[in-house]
Design a protein around this nucleic acid. Structure first.
Lengths: 129, 129
DNA sequence: TTGTATTTACGAAAACATTCGTATATAATT
DNA sequence: AATTATATACGAATGTTTTCGTAAATACAA
């Protein structure tokens, strides 16, 4: 059930999706404030981007009150999956394992996280039998 | 020793870097042929991009002979590391483990690859002690 | 009511990335 | 030497993404 009806979000659109995923349906003001906690963005810039996202069907909005409330139309997991696929292809020539090795090597993982990965590997190995 | 003097390559530039990494210093003709094995690109388009890459210091070239030979100025591993860092931040809100889980879940890994990852995890666990 | 603040709508500029046509130079072929 | 093939240089067109100014509408406050 891959979502091919949704285009790939641009970088800025992804930033906005992160806010919508993390905090749920939000106003432009709220999203813009969150973005500005990280980097400076003008209010109308954020507004415009969110309107474009509605055009593209990446988001939808409730216009009942004057302050429109936007929500993501794409799920975080599905989007991550799609972007990851492309990223692996472009950057690691399709080798997901090379990416995993890089990721584990660079970032310090806690024991709990390592355990999580080990459990996942066991599960995959069972399936392979 | 992170390479901050090099800008982030664009998608097209990354495609070219892949060729230079995989086959070593190459002519525009060679790179263009490799790209065309995947998708149609005009010769002068590739030429222009490679000239831009020299401008940006992503590559350099030997102009001794008429056919210039280009080589990457950035290493594959360093570039992958930098792009991965950014990708994890933008797409997985910094959680490398979430990315690893997604990557292992989506792509089928062979037993050898799983063993490689397990070995890496053991190494990390040793360091953690 | 009158002014002030906040919001959306819209278009266009600015910034960035990609593509390619054309001119010119150099090498190879006949 | 003349023709053909191949290379670089360069600018400009095209496409995409991001940014923002301005106007109009709506709510709020004095």
């Amino acid at each position: 059930m891959t979502q091919r009806q949704f285009p790939k979000p641009t970088e800025s659109e992804l930033e906005i999706l992160q806010v919508l995923w993390q905090f749920g349906p939000s106003s432009v003001r709220f999203v813009n404030d969150k973005l500005n906690a990280i980097r400076e963005v003008g209010y109308t810039t954020t507004l415009k981007l969110m309107q474009i996202m509605v055009d593209k069907n990446l988001a939808s909005r409730n216009t009942d009150s004057r302050t429109h409330i936007y929500k993501a139309n794409v799920s975080e997991a599905d989007t991550q999956k799609r972007l990851l696929q492309k990223f692996v292809d472009k950057t690691f020539r399709g080798s997901a394992v090379k990416l995993v090795v890089q990721a584990l090597g660079n970032h310090s993982a806690s024991q709990e996280e390592l355990d999580e990965i080990k459990a996942l590997i066991r599960k995959i190995e069972e399936q392979n039998d």
